[in-house]
Design a protein around this nucleic acid. Structure first.
Lengths: 162, 162
DNA sequence: TTTTCTGCAAACTGTTTGCAAAGGC
DNA sequence: GCCTTTGCAAACAGTTTGCAGAAAA
């Protein structure tokens, strides 16, 4: 049976099922906090901070302790089920790590938004580079810093107004 | 007169002179703490944490307050004279931003080392991508996560020993 | 002399940890 | 019943901020 009803955009990654499997294989039991967190991560589109995760869980009446969020996210990162990224300001963000979908981020320095994007040429360059390097590369992380379209528009508008 | 005696590898970027100019233009005065920090940054090769900077300054008898380090680094970042990078663990690192030399980083997850590297293909991909994006990109940041040569060797040795 | 810069110490904030109770198997 | 998972609260660590004295212009 195919899963459905998630907010994934077309491609069903089956991340949730894969995660359950990996967790079971690794000897983890099924706790309420972890389940709630997995459900949330499964539906999320892009990297979230722990505070955001906490708020969203509380909003859907599945409040769990902050320590549990950190602990579970750490486990999931060890199992390569989520990726931890930092786009500045020293606040960690987490997102699902799907084998078939990989993206990077633009961090808007005006509004703080984190916007995902993909680029094949970039991916290709990183793969070639990784293969030829003297070190073993297990993952990578690209962050573009700049201003998002909305903030650019807002800035332009305020200039013409002034 | 040309400056000399710095640890720059061949290419004299004149970063220090440029920095002094920018700071003066921006209306900053010359303080002891800032001077000591600029001297250190001028000679450094790759990104340092604030704690490392503090230790190095103390070691050379130019101890300055930690708050000053943060404050000056912040000013320098505003003026695009240093770049702040985060390679994980939520600890910020800072390094000179030289217009003629740009590099990225490998973060070794075993020993925590941060190793710089350059790659033209990667740079090219990012430039093309930035130009075509709907947002205005002012900077970028690539981090490869993996294991450095030394740690790989150590791991291999310990396996064969065991 | 006026304004900036600096150091100290206290405050903040995101993250981690110890421990006892609750929950899975 | 045994062992894991969870929540709470306290501890931590990096970073920021307020303020008074020192230093630059």
């Amino acid at each position: 049976m195919e899963r459905m009803g998630t907010a994934h955009s077309g491609v069903e990654t089956d991340w949730r099922r894969h995660a359950d499997e990996r967790l079971t294989d690794a000897g983890y039991r099924r706790g309420g906090a972890r389940t709630a967190l997995l459900d949330l991560l499964d539906v999320q589109r892009c990297a979230r901070t722990v505070l955001e995760i906490e708020d969203e869980l509380r909003a859907s009446d599945r409040t769990i302790g902050r320590a549990s969020i950190y602990r579970v996210l750490d486990e999931l990162e060890q199992l390569h089920l989520v990726q931890r990224i930092e786009v500045g300001q020293g606040i960690a963000r987490y997102e699902r790590l799907a084998p078939d979908h990989h993206h990077h981020h633009l961090a808007c320095k005006d509004c703080g938004a984190v916007i995902p994007f993909t680029d094949d040429r970039l991916e290709d360059a990183i793969h070639r580079l990784s293969a030829g390097a003297g070190f073993e590369v297990t993952g990578h992380d690209v962050v573009l810093h700049g201003t998002c379209a909305a903030c650019r528009a807002a800035a332009a508008a305020s200039v013409s107004t002034a």
